[in-house]
């Protein structure tokens, strides 16, 4: 992250085991990847965003992030319908590296089962997952 300008409230974020972060407002989840994940992926050169309207199950592959090194699947942390994607990434995929929690967000999901929020990791539990790697 380059600056302190947060789009989301970091203290309220939860995380999937697969390193996506989620911010939930009502039944709308905003999704991105963690700072740890963007460092692992490094040098993002292309982001294949999901089609708005697409319906996904939790843990289903939603999209692909391409770095110089490899292609990485990004999974839906919660089930639902894609309502919005970050169009800026089409021309500036490097925002995922520069600003993973703000300008580098990926997509929004209208959640079909808000209870899935409880299955995600809180910040401290996610820290433990990270350090296990």
């Amino acid at each position: 992250m380059e600056n302190g300008e947060w789009r989301v409230d970091a203290s309220k974020l939860k995380y999937a085991q697969t390193h996506e972060w989620v911010s939930l407002k009502g039944n709308v989840a905003t999704v991105g990847i963690s700072d740890h994940a963007q460092k692992e992926i490094s040098d993002v050169v292309f982001v294949e965003l999901p089609a708005p309207g697409r319906v996904l199950k939790q843990k289903e592959s939603a999209m692909v992030i391409e770095s110089v090194k490899a292609a990485f699947d990004i999974y839906a942390p919660m089930s639902g319908k894609i309502t919005r994607v970050n169009e800026k990434l089409k021309d500036k995929p490097e925002l995922v590296n520069r600003s993973p929690y703000a300008d580098g967000w990926l997509f929004e999901i209208e959640c079909s089962n808000v209870k899935e929020w409880d299955s995600l990791l809180a910040g401290d539990a996610y820290e433990a997952v990270k350090s296990a790697h």
Binding site: T18, H19, E20, A37, E40, I41, A70, F72, D73, I74
Partner: peptide, 8 residues
């Protein structure tokens, strides 16, 4: 994403 495995 799936993190590349640390080699052993």
């Amino acid at each position: 994403m799936t993190v590349l495995e640390e080699p052993t």
